[in-house]
Amino acid sequence: MANKKVKQAGKAAQTARTNPYVTRIIEDEDLRQNIVQAFESARDAYSRLNNGKSPTKQIFEDKKLQKHIRESADGVRNASVALYEAPKKRKSGGGGFGRVLLLGVVGGAVALALSEGLRKKVLDALFGAEEEFEYTSTTSSPSSTPTAGTTA
């Protein structure tokens, strides 16, 4: 019976060691201080609230009680933020597909900027080939027509 409980305790301890939250509490001094501060402030607020006076009146009028409640809330919030950040791990691989895509886009933009032939090919593929034509005027130039006010 005792041997079974020892094995269960050992298994629980091993599980706790691999838990990222427990590891963070063990390793992070600031997190432990936030937890202790939150606990002490909550204990102080409870003792002030439990002194026999009306709790409603104390909550609204007792400045020290309000201060203890505020400190307790701040400590709990800071501890929860620190614990929330604990299990985050950096992704392995470094986002390879995103990097390759970015490199391809930047490389393509540089190639288009530097190569006039490539620019023409891309524009032709997107909008079709340009039609080349020469402009010929169907009207005569104004210098070849006689003017009404001049005599020869």
Score class of each variant (00 low, 15 high):
Q66L: 08
S140R: 10
H68T: 10
A111L: 04
T138I: 03
P55L: 08
G117K: 12
A38W: 05
G94D: 06
A113E: 07
A79Q: 04
G107R: 12
V36W: 00
L101M: 07
V36L: 04
K67W: 14
E130F: 12
V81F: 00
G10R: 10
T147Y: 13
Y21K: 00
E71S: 03
N51Y: 00
K88W: 02
E40I: 04
R90W: 10
A12K: 15
T15S: 03
P55S: 07
E131Y: 08
E134H: 13
R48Y: 04
V110G: 03
I35N: 05
Q58L: 15
T23C: 05
R43P: 00
A86V: 08
R90N: 04
L118F: 07
K4C: 14
N3Q: 14
A86H: 02
G94P: 07
I26D: 02
A13W: 12
Q66S: 09
R24E: 12
A129V: 08
V105H: 06
G128P: 09
G104E: 10
R32K: 11
S140H: 03
F127L: 07
G96M: 13
N51W: 00
S141I: 13
K91L: 09
G75I: 14
E130V: 14
S47Y: 05
S140D: 03
V22A: 06
G128A: 13
A86R: 02
L65R: 02
P20V: 10
Q14W: 06
R24N: 05
L114A: 04
R48M: 08
A82F: 00
F97N: 08
K88D: 02
G104P: 00
A73Q: 11
R32N: 03
V22F: 08
K120V: 11
A79F: 05
F127H: 05
S92T: 12
G98C: 01
L114C: 02
P55E: 09
V122R: 04
T139M: 15
P87G: 02
S140K: 11
